[in-house]
Amino acid sequence: MSTNDQSAAATAEERIVRITVNGTAMSGIAEPRLLLHDFLRHELELTGTHAGCEHGVCGACTIRLNGEVVRSCIMFAVQADGASIETVEGMANNGVLHPIQVAFQEEHGLQCGFCTPGMLMATQTLLEENPDPSEDEIREYLSGNICRCTGYVGIVASVKSAAKKLSVIQSNANGKA
């Protein structure tokens, strides 16, 4: 088989991938080898999710897929067909920052901003699973998300602050209900 034939065969294998991203139905074309982060970033133009290592170590590409934290750099786009995905772009509400985002600004939880989207996705999931985590629990949970700027001091403080903010919101909501 000539190289041209191989390339033609790859094109014939392209799939339409349909996913729900941040509540909106979206679709795009992916050849089977296209990684999910490339699909999100370059096919759907959601560039908030970043690629830092492409082998699932650094956590910059962290998204939520059907509510679970996943690495979008070690998953193919075609594997996500039909899934519901959450990315950093869905966190703020029409320009109003989510309490977790506010906490990261107030506690200096970011510097260059490159790890931040993945860090926010992981934090959101942690606080859903464990609304009042200890410092050790925070450090253990976020140990798969690398930050090269902050030395993690501001990030840990941000997560603690976010937990407080969310618990106040929760208790206010309970009070009203």
Binding site: R41, L46, T47, G48, T49, H50, A51, T87, V88, E89, M91, A92, L97, Q101, F104, Q105, E106, H108, L110, C112, G113, F114, T116, P117, L120
Partner: peptide
């Protein structure tokens, strides 16, 4: 507080690959 932050927190940063 850093005026830079909201752009990064909302995924609107513009790094080279973006």
């Amino acid at each position: 507080l850093r005026t830079e932050d909201p752009v990064f927190l909302t995924g609107r940063g513009k790094y080279t690959d973006d």
